[in-house]
Each structure stands twice: as C-alpha cells, then as structure tokens.
Amino acid sequence: MNNPGLTIARFLPIFLLIILFSSAVYPYSCLYTENDSAEYPLASPQNIICFADYLYCQKDYLRAIGEYERIAPALLNDTIKFKIALGNKYIGKISQSESLLFLLGSSSIFSNEATLELFKGRFLRNDFTGLRNLYDKREITSAKYNEKIKQMYYLSFLFDEVPLPGHESFTNLFPATERKSILEFINRKENPEYKSLWKAVMLSALLPGAGKFYTEEYGDAITIAIVTGLSGYLACDNFASGHNFRAIAFTGLGALFYAGNIYGSAASAQIYNARVKFNLTSDLKLYLNKNNYFLPEYENFCK
C-alpha cells in the first residue's frame, strides 16, 4: 500500500479524468475561454473582445466596432468605449464618435484623452466654429491637455474670417522659439496682401488689360490689350472702308472682349485673394505638421 508507484497508478485514472474534464471545459488555450457555461466558445465575451481587438489593430474598424457592440454594456470598459469612439472617427461616423467622446470626457479614465480628441477632431476637420463653441461653453475641459486645447482654440482664429483675440495672450501660449513664426502668421492674417476688386474693375475699364496686370495675370493682360485693340482697329478700318457688316461684327466682338475684360478682372482679383487665403492656411498647416502639433500620444492600443 505504501508503494509510491502503486499509489500513483491508483490515482492515475482520476488524474486523467481531471485532464479530460478540464480539456473539455477549456477546449483550446487560444480560445481564451474561462466561461464554462459558454455553449459556443467563440461567442464568449472574452473571445469577442479578443477578436475585436485584433480587428481594431488591423484597422478593420467597422467590424471591430460591430464585435465590441455585441458585448453586454456592463462589460464594456473605458478602453473599449474609447476605442469604439476612435474607430467611429476613423470610419467617418463623426456624430457617434463625438457623443461617445463627450460621455468619456465627463467621467472615465480617458477623460483627458477624450476631451483632447473632441477638440482635435474638430480642428482637423476644419470645424473651427464648432471648436470655438465647444471651448467657449466650457462644458468639457481637460486638466492634462488644457494647454494644447487652448493653443488649438487660438490657432483656429487664423483659419477663418473671425477677428483675432489679443496678440499677447495668443503668442504667450507658444514656446519662445515659436513665437516669431506665430506672430508672422498673425500679421499675415491681419494684413493680407489682398487686391481690391473695385480697383481692378476701374483699371480695366480705363485701359483693357490693366485690371489683370494689377492682379498679376500678365499674360492675360497682354492678350486682352491685343485682342481688344485689334477688334477696335478692325472695326474702325472696316467702317472707313465702307464694309459696314464686318465693322459692326468687329465692334460687337470688341465690346464683348471689353466687357469680358472688366468682368474677368473682378473675378481675377477674387481668385487672387482666395490664393492669398489658401497660402496662409496651407503654410500654417505645414508649420503645425512640421512641429508635430496634436500628435496622439495615447493611441498605443496595438503596440
């Protein structure tokens, strides 16, 4: 009885039964199944989350969100909710993303990140009015990213037509090394090198082509001067030669070119101004990208 070999042999069947039982309940270690009541292990919450995490890291966001949403709401932790919000943002479902971020921003372990994400989303979508409304209402704030959010708030004024807030409070938000560049952008916004539409119209009315010359479309200006001048000359010449039909045709053509030149100068001034505005915006975006503003530090769920 005291033979240890015999004792092992006696308990071996029980030991094997335990193994059999355990392997039936936990059929396969990779299934991450700890729920012995699960009828179908692949449908257990742990496995669904595991699979959804995998899909999320594959950037298969719609499927990942679908999987997360299969889980009972009580089991959805803040990380999953934040991932659902980010996933919705990536696939363009902005309203779903924002409503979840609002919820997370008010109370969760990701409240700082969710708040920053709300502001960042609006900034990157060029919804500057929305960003300022969000900031002014102060419904949602982040202690950790307050500085960044404030920077975004002030920078948003540079992108649209709204008057800028005080220079000093603006530039003081940025490190001393960047203040000069920011001040330059502020100056470009406040004193844009726009062309006057009416000046272009008046110039072109006085001398065909002069309006386009003013808006720096030199090739067009020379062409207009030649075409209008030639039409006028041909009209006069034909009147003088008694070719009345041709003369009237050239007069009409000349008048059309003259009127078109005035109209075109106005349009050209507007396009010139649009270019000035576009250049400011694109230079500013380039500067922000170059200085790695608003890079997400928390999106490391897949690392």
Binding site: Y218, G219, D220, I222, T223, I224, V227, L256, F257, A259, G260, N261, Y263, G264, A267
Partner: peptide
C-alpha cells in the same frame, strides 16, 4: 456671356 468672353481671352493667352 461675360464669363465666356473672359474665358475666351484667357484661352488665347499663350502662357
């Protein structure tokens, strides 16, 4: 018609 006249002159511009 004015927009067309402007476009036509811009079309004739070689540069």
């Amino acid at each position: 018609a004015l927009m067309f006249a402007d476009r036509f002159t811009r079309d004739m511009n070689l540069i």
